[in-house]
């Protein structure tokens, strides 16, 4: 197990290295930040001197090596917009993103799992049709559109929830629902199909033959066996939820890293983009690692060498 973890951690470093190279390359070809950072009336001499000050007069590979050596020490330089250390800004905004992702995850589980279970037990019923519809529609609905619709209905017309911003628990409701919808749909479909498969297994028939209560059969024998892939997906999706928060955070003015990163990309704020991406990537790599390790724990048949 320990060897496996060491191997995975080393591989994660490779992933981060590749990612840093990718981000750097994309930023390098995305345009000259000096022209965007300066007011439009700035003379050419100003552009040249800013390029020099930012190190853009050096060859790209030198710029990358410098970036890499700093990044390894956890330094990304100061954000060009804020004038503050980029990594500090990202870490300051990260808890809000984490909170939103966690809320979305819990909402998806609390609603999605029971709906999936009931859909499977009552296959063909109205609830099943509802669950299936939610599964399809939820995945197809763009989160931008859904977010605006929820704001219009619950904040503007019904006035029961705030439109945006962060503060009390009620500020979290609409963005969490928006962010969770696609995942919720996945959970419903996954639990439903998993339950249907398991309900046809021999051991369920055996349990029924033993005269067990339907509730005991469904929950203890069927549902528990359905949970393993769900837990795996939860881990993987939690990483993705953080990334998916980019749109949700912008729509709901949620002060998280997603919105910060979007603004940084628009302003070509390289240090802030790099710090955001690396923190996101670290999180996803970590989430994947935990899931892989959990796998072995949850399913005793899986062993790592």
């Amino acid at each position: 197990m320990r060897d496996y973890i060491v191997k995975r951690v080393l591989r994660s470093f490779l992933v981060l290295f590749g990612l840093s190279l990718g981000v750097f390359a994309l930023l390098s070809i995305s345009g000259d930040p000096a022209t965007i950072m300066l007011p439009p009336e700035a003379p050419m001499s100003e552009v040249i001197s800013l390029r020099k000050a930012l190190g853009f007069d050096e060859p790209v590979y030198i710029q990358y090596l410098k970036f890499l050596s700093r990044a390894l020490r956890g330094e990304f330089g100061n954000s060009w917009q804020y004038g503050l250390p980029a990594i500090n800004l990202v870490l300051e905004f990260f808890p809000a993103t984490f909170q939103l992702a966690l809320a979305a995850l819990l909402f998806a589980l609390v609603v999605g799992i029971p709906l999936g279970v009931v859909s499977a037990i009552r296959e063909g019923s109205i609830i099943d049709a509802l669950g299936l519809s939610l599964g399809v529609v939820g995945r197809a609905m763009p989160s931008f559109w859904l977010g605006i619709m929820l704001i219009l209905v619950f904040a503007v017309n019904l006035k029961v929830l705030p439109t945006s911003g962060k503060g009390e628990l009620r500020h979290l409701v609409l963005p969490a629902i928006t962010l969770s919808t696609a995942f919720l749909a996945q959970i419903v479909l996954l639990v439903r199909s998993g339950m249907l498969d398991v309900l046809r297994e021999d051991y369920i028939r055996t349990a029924q033959a033993k005269g067990l209560q339907p509730y005991t059969i469904n929950m203890r024998h069927a549902f528990r066996n359905t949970l393993i892939p769900v837990v795996t997906m939860v881990g993987l999706t939690f990483g993705r939820l953080l990334g998916g928060s980019v749109i949700t955070e912008s729509v709901f003015s949620w002060p998280g890293v997603g919105r910060l990163a979007v603004q940084a990309v628009s302003a070509r704020d390289f240090p802030l983009v790099q710090a955001s991406v690396v923190v996101f990537a670290l999180w996803i790599v970590l989430a994947n690692l935990i899931v892989d390790l959990l796998y072995a724990f949850l399913d005793p048949r899986i062993r790592y060498g």
């Binding site: 704001i151 904040a155 439109t163 945006s164 911003g165 729509v251 003015s253």
Partner: peptide
Amino acid sequence: FKPFSEDATRVAALQAEE
């Protein structure tokens, strides 16, 4: 001063009297 990068949200916040 509250920041709203989305026009639609800013307008909705005005309608919701926020």
